[in-house]
């Protein structure tokens, strides 16, 4: 069953590598052009790769809480119908608690990042 996925992965890689190979033949020059990055026509004063200030990092923590929650969500999906009301109540109380956390973070300004 996963064989198809493995074959597709190989095929996908072949498509990308094939495109690069084909380009060697069709391009005006197979060697890439060495160049500075585009900076409106100027030489950069420093390299762009740096410690970037991702000011939304508090949201990543919030995201992590929900992401871990998804681990419970997937198995839960398959048993809701069997277990019934208690499964729904338990899951949504849990989600409700997380959502309260989101609202608190929102009020604290964690979602505002500019």
């Amino acid at each position: 069953m996963y064989l198809a996925a493995a074959v597709m992965l190989l095929l996908g890689a072949a498509v990308a590598v094939g495109a690069w190979r084909l380009h060697r033949v069709t391009a005006v020059d197979p060697a890439p052009l060495a160049t500075l990055p585009f900076l409106s026509g100027w030489r950069p004063r420093e390299h762009a790769l740096s410690r970037f200030h991702a000011r939304y990092y508090p949201v990543t923590l919030l995201f992590l809480a929900f992401d871990v929650e998804m681990l419970y969500m997937y198995p839960w999906v398959t048993v809701v119908a069997e277990v019934g009301v208690s499964a729904v109540v338990e899951m949504f109380v849990f989600l409700g608690v997380l959502m309260v956390g989101v609202l608190w973070a929102w009020r604290e300004g964690a979602l505002r990042w500019v």
Binding site: H23, V28, D29, P32, L33, T35
Partner: peptide, 12 residues
């Protein structure tokens, strides 16, 4: 397909 690729300085 016809256009050349670019390699920027100190690219990863």
């Amino acid at each position: 397909l016809r256009q050349r690729r670019r390699r920027t300085v100190a690219a990863d």
